[in-house]
């Protein structure tokens, strides 16, 4: 059950996107998210969709993986678009009691669902092609200016790395503890909500105990290797911008220009 978590799992590979500087990828992700919300008509939406699709194809990650992450948000997409259908002004196409469907509403629903899908595809594209360590590295580097404001950038990045690192470990641990308690006849599938919550105690308590034990052991191991926070710490892998990174920036600039132009020359819909 817990093994099926594919959302955001790094997929090793050697595609163009894999080779991009993680900092660039992170900045571009943020930029594209802004682009997605800057597309106000179907033409510009098509431009950003095409760009997203290109990124997805370039990532060389099996499309199946993208569908898997889309499946997770399918319900959210359905609910938000269903809500949007009934909240448009303009010509009424269909009415039933309080519920009115308008052309505006349908457009809105399409926009919202396409936007959510694009957001998921883009962020999956980042996490599929970037190792968690690279990602936190990038975050640390990008947040460096905040140091002037006494934000503990390195500590935050280290905490993120450790948290990400332990997600699979704790999932595995949960699996193991669940099996062990099931072997003792624990019944986790039947009964009402209260019974089900109660049935979680034999799993949560050992899980917490082991999480604390692991945290303690990790802290000791880090101290043994003279870890003392971020001050004076150098990196083994220093990030460098390569030609490919500049190319991706230029392409993204073109995409942005395309969206802006399409917004100017075609009528806004939402």
């Amino acid at each position: 059950m817990t093994r099926d978590v594919s959302f955001g799992q790094y997929m090793p590979g050697d595609g163009v996107i894999h080779r991009l500087d993680p900092r660039i990828k992170l900045i571009l992700l943020i930029a594209y998210i802004v682009f997605v919300f800057c597309a106000f008509n179907f033409v510009s939406l098509a431009v950003i969709s095409a760009a997203t699709f290109a990124a997805v194809m370039l990532s060389r990650v099996p499309l199946r993986m993208y569908f898997k992450s889309l499946k997770v948000v399918l319900i959210i997409v359905l609910i938000t678009s269903a809500l949007n259908i009934f909240y448009g002004g303009g010509d009424v196409l269909w009415q039933w009691g309080y519920l009115t469907v308008t052309k505006d509403g349908i457009f809105r629903a399409i926009f919202v669902s396409v936007r959510i899908v694009l957001l998921i595809l883009l962020s999956s594209c980042l996490t599929f092609t970037t190792t968690p360590t690279d990602l936190t590295d990038a975050i640390e580097r990008l947040m460096k200016p905040l140091k002037a404001l006494h934000v503990k950038v390195h500590e935050i990045a280290m905490m993120m790395t450790i948290a990400l690192r332990f997600v699979p470990t704790l999932l595995e641990e949960t699996d193991k503890i669940m099996s062990a308690q099931k072997a003792r006849g624990a019944d986790m599938d039947s009964g009402g909500i209260i019974k089900k919550v109660k049935a979680m105690t034999p799993i949560l308590i050992p899980l917490f105990v082991s999480a604390f034990r692991r945290a303690y052991e990790l802290a000791v191991a880090m101290e043994c290797r003279c870890y003392h926070g971020g001050d004076g710490r150098t990196r083994m892998k220093v990030l460098h911008m390569k030609p490919l990174d500049y190319v991706s920036l230029v392409i993204s600039g073109i995409v942005l220009a395309g969206i802006v132009l399409c917004n100017v020359f075609f009528a806004s819909i939402v």
């Binding site: 193991k176 503890i177 099996s179 062990a180 308690q181 099931k182 072997a183 003792r184 006849g185 105690t201 034999p202 799993i203 308590i205 050992p206 105990v209 082991s210």
Partner: peptide, 16 residues
């Protein structure tokens, strides 16, 4: 499961 009892590796981690 009551007929075939199973003691896992490091079973002490299941105490709760």
């Amino acid at each position: 499961r009551f007929k075939v009892g199973m003691v896992f590796q490091y079973p002490e981690y299941q105490l709760f």
